[in-house]
Design a protein around this nucleic acid. Structure first.
Lengths: 170, 170
DNA sequence: CTGTGTGACTACACGCGCGTAGTTACGCGC
DNA sequence: GCGCGTAACTACGCGCGTGTAGTCACACAG
């Protein structure tokens, strides 16, 4: 099973953040690359598709005005429940993050009174934007071999590996 | 019609913020006291009940992890719709603040897809906490005379003006 | 194996949002 | 009107999160 990964600068284009942010987040343990971390100058950080998703979520949180501190808390939930976030909503109720499947649960949280929801983020939208950005900016990079059976690694498009070098030059 | 006001340090206790924050927010035009602004050393900032409400909202936003920049945007809506916020929810949908009356509208905003709600804050809870804090920490201060017909100025309790000096002593 | 590009590393600096300390001058009781 | 408390003012500094510039060293092509 070959894992596919993305290098730092590519990640920045896909997610829409600066390299400085990606670097800072990796150094401060907000999100380290799960495939391959940096081991000195010249090495490369290799991020997985799941990493991209988390990074995109972080960017959404920042764009929504949330602090990085809260983003760290929110990420914990994504790491725990980590499977198929496509149909869930990331909700922060009273500084505690939860994954909510149905919209009705959100109403429950609001009606329960005291709860201040500091975030209601539909992950399906994040996934859509992410896949579109991947196809637009850069394809993944094989790091251990060649195989195309992994549905977890990339959006459904297998012709993308051809423009690999085009991505590096740009 | 006598307006009732609260001085800086009292406001800090009621709202639950530091004086430095109140000072900074007044200087940077986040929220200036609507009754009487500062005019040099020794003068006093006199805040109205509505000011307290807005300050409490700001504190909730900060506690929820929102940045001051977003708080400024959110406050604009409170100033515009400024009447009877007790039964409304302050919602920020895609960096644009709106006042939502029914819970169903929130579901609409979520279902409409792309919308990231960076905040869902039930103002009724804020009002409750504020009134409780006022009665606990400090009563209002008359600045222009005496009258008790104004339901907009304070929670329903008229014996509070007696402990005025107790509040000043700290 | 060598050269080159590129991505990680380092140092420095900035703005925001406050904490802390000391100063100034008004409000209020007397 | 006078003194005293108190609240606003001023100056300085910090930590976070990031921008910018330059250096270093691995990865990959040749």
């Amino acid at each position: 099973m070959s894992e596919q990964g993305y290098r730092g600068p590519q990640v920045c284009k896909i997610v829409g953040i600066t390299y400085r942010q990606l670097d800072y987040w990796a150094r401060t343990d907000l999100l380290k690359p799960s495939i391959s971390d940096a081991r000195g100058s010249g090495t490369q950080r290799i991020y997985s598709y799941t990493d991209l998703l988390k990074l995109k979520v972080i960017k959404q949180l920042l764009d929504s005005g949330l602090s990085l501190k809260k983003a760290r808390v929110a990420l914990d939930v994504l790491s725990q429940y980590g499977e198929d976030p496509g149909s869930a909503n990331l909700v922060m109720a009273g500084n505690q993050p939860v994954l909510v499947r149905s919209q009705d649960e959100i109403v429950d949280l609001v009606q329960r009174g005291q709860g201040v929801l500091s975030l209601v983020l539909p992950l399906s939208g994040v996934v859509k934007e992410l896949n579109a950005a991947i196809l637009e900016f850069a394809p993944p990079v094989d790091v251990e071999g060649e195989g195309e059976g992994s549905a977890d690694a990339a959006p459904d498009d297998n012709a993308t590996t051809d423009i690999l070098k085009a991505g590096t030059g740009g």
